[in-house]
Design a protein around this nucleic acid. Structure first.
Lengths: 236, 236
DNA sequence: GTGCACTAAATCGTATACAATCACGCCTGG
DNA sequence: CCAGGCGTGATTGTATACGATTTAGTGCAC
């Protein structure tokens, strides 16, 4: 189930409890069970996970470093609500780094890793055909895992972590500004990219990747939606 | 003095005390007043800054997220001691992103920003001719600020933050593996890059940048030096 | 003299307690 | 009836306290 998430693990151990809470909240954000703007009170988070505010605070702080949570001084933590400009920057960053990552990954990829990628693609396709919220969430995750797997194959842990951040934030952006429910509409494109990698056509692969990213971004309606009074009711 | 550091400020306010401590320690690490491997005990840091362990811990945690500090479970925090492999990954990441950043920056740069860059270059040159530890530290900082300024001009806050991390970690790597005291030996190269930008020759600018990064990396002696006096005496 | 086990000091992990700040509602004055 | 100041409650910011884990030193047995 969590095949790639496990494969991407870099830490040696579970370390501290705050880490687990951070991961749990991040997963909830990425899978869109938590909407942008939702308030994450330290006490509430602490009670929810049966730990003290100290750990809850640490987890929220960590998420704020990743850009998934915004903490306002003396006001609290909220699930990030990326502005259209932020959204553009996120995708600009992805256009900037993903071709390089892909290029490096294509150079180092082994046959078994190609197989792993294909397996991921298959899983993605299977989820796409399923119905239900749960399948949709898994699909969102799988779609991101494709890009994360490439970063993992590239062998650069730093770029891998950066991509994790970018993919997670992309999910937020899509949740906010996505029009069609085409979060993973790039499924076919993923397949094309794998094919290009397999025949060692790096040039084409990069081109396809850029097209793929632009395709996702193109599905967004990047318009400022700051309905103030309404938003407060939405704020819970 | 802190012209660029101020210009790069993204946060609206000083926020919390932990932030200040984090910045102070980071600056000490980047300017190499703290050597890799140095132990940063929570109590010591707290006492030093006259705050409780809570804030000290938060600061160290933040630095660990940036890769400048390594925290080992139940053992403590240490100034990061990047392995040769980590060092290579850091520079690989810079080669991957800096051309893109530069390219974007060159497209958007204004005459006043060109002027600002040149001013930075001048300052860098001035510091190079000075003697003394203090000047050396300022020089290290100025050298990195050139790259950071480009990221700032590119207009992408995400890439800017990423570059801040990479530059800081590069400083650690150079402190560990640098051979000649050529930390800023690329001064002339910085000038060449600015010139290329000025005449809108993006192609050349990117090429120069790649050369510049490789030049810095080439000055490193990336050899595992984990075992201390024990093994060295034995090997010789 | 060497090796092992046990104790003690130090440090981190987590929880709780107190202080400061902000949001919201009430009360008063016009 | 409305506007503005003030108090109260809630939430965050910071400090302190306690328990858990590691490390180092010491003493005992062999």
């Amino acid at each position: 189930m969590n095949s790639t998430a496990d494969a991407l693990q870099t830490n040696d151990s579970a370390e501290t409890g705050a880490q687990q809470i951070r991961d749990a909240i991040r997963e909830a954000i990425v899978e869109r069970r938590l909407s942008p703007g939702t308030k994450l009170s330290e006490s509430d988070v602490g009670n929810l996970f049966k730990v003290s505010r100290t750990l809850a605070r640490a987890a929220l702080q960590a998420l704020s470093y990743e850009g998934l949570v915004r903490v306002e001084k003396n006001r609290g933590a909220f699930v990030a609500y990326p502005s259209p400009d932020e959204a553009r920057q996120i995708f600009a960053a992805r256009r900037l780094v993903e071709p390089g990552i892909l290029s490096e990954a294509a150079k180092r990829i082994t046959p078994s890793q190609v197989q792993h990628l294909k397996q991921l693609l298959l899983e993605e396709g299977r989820l796409m055909s399923e119905r239900g919220q749960s399948a949709r969430r898994a699909e969102i995750k799988a779609s991101g895992d494709f890009h994360l797997m490439l970063a993992s194959i590239s062998g650069n842990l730093i770029m891998q972590r950066f991509m994790e951040e970018l993919v997670a934030r992309s999910s937020l952006v899509i949740a906010l500004y996505g029009q069609s429910s085409a979060s993973s509409c790039g499924h076919a494109e993923h397949g094309d990219i794998i094919a290009a990698i397999e025949r060692r056509d790096i040039e084409t692969a990069c081109h396809l990747m850029l097209h793929h990213i632009s395709h996702i971004e193109g599905d967004l309606d990047l318009r400022e939606r700051k309905s103030f009074g309404l938003k407060e009711a939405f704020e819970r």
